[in-house]
Amino acid sequence: MAGIPALPRRLHGPSIWALYAIGLVPAAWNFYLGATGGLGVNPVKTFEHLLGIWALRFLIATLAITPLRDVLGLNWLRYRRALGLLAFYYVLMHFSVWLILDRGLDFGSIGADIAKRPYITIGIVCLACLLPLALTSNNWSIRRLGQRWNGLHRLIYPIALGGALHYFLAVKSVTLTPFVHIALVALLLLYRPLRKPFLNWKRGSPRLARASR
């Protein structure tokens, strides 16, 4: 693809570390704002919701890597692990803020909330599913698990679906911001079953074009 110049190979490693650093900026900056009174009069809820939205954004970015390569020819596969782990870190922070600052570690009501409210149940299940993915996000696990690693990491699809559903069920009315996030997740998930036919068509099309000449 023209337009985006390829990054020199020696910068691949540093660019991944830069992504981790930049990716954690929204959490750090809003934590600072919250601690200094800059997040409005309900800082806990604001911070909690921000962390949740950023978690979904990193999930979306993770899912976008494959279609970006297929459709635009951008090979950003090297960033996928960092994006997935950033999504996990944000989900973990979102959960911790809910547990500690929002619910005040009131485990009675926390247990009742998890059991009774579908969007919270879904959220917890997604976090539980993310855990094995995060723990196996290292080269040793990839080597060790072989094909099973690929199978395990397909969990990202139900997790993304659950994350979008969690957001949809948590808002009082679906306005533009939730709609865009949920639609992006839907689009990226819908791409998966269409991927094979699309790649076949893409590979076949120049030949077809020649044949029809």
């Binding site: 601690a35 009131d106 969007y119 069920l169």
Partner: peptide, 17 residues
Amino acid sequence: PRWSQATEQRIGEGGFF
């Protein structure tokens, strides 16, 4: 269905921590 009504957060009294 989505929010417990047993407790409430008094705006302005809590803080971040």
